[in-house]
Amino acid sequence: MEKKALFEGIVREEKDKVFNLAYRLCGDFHQAHDITQETFMRAYGSFERFEGRSQLFTYLYRIACNVWKNSLRKKSFSSFTSYRLDDREIDPPAREPSPYESMRSEDRCRMVQKCLDSLPARERAIIVLRDIEGRTYEEIASILGCRLGTVKSRLARARKSLSEKVLPFMEVAGK
């Protein structure tokens, strides 16, 4: 019972971060919901094995990335109904910006997410963790279970690729 109460607190604290990561990785709101849910379920199942040597968010992010990678392999999420941020049934942003800001923000979100989705999965994960989540190289290596050199090279490729993809939008935005 104590474990469950403790874990409930963790879910409350970390769910937004995990959900955000999941959404940036998969680009689908409902899939992100499922990834987050599965992440916490797995975390709960192996909670005793969490020794606290890594930070809790690293632990959860690692699980979330594995769940996402598994979902890519199994294609188990292909049957999910695809909801995007522009689906009116779901209202993901918590704060309520002005209509202009909101529109621009939504457009920007859609555009960036589309560019992210076009990246290879491995590069996408690294650039999300680095440029969106702001994790260090070492943390990324720990979360994704790869070497530091790999993180550096993949991040460079991801940035170059993404910059080429977002260039037209940036020009539009600049105008």
Partner: peptide, 11 residues
């Protein structure tokens, strides 16, 4: 651009 994305809130 990526870092300026507003963080999403879980449902």
């Amino acid at each position: 651009m990526l870092s300026s994305l507003e963080p999403l809130t879980a449902p």
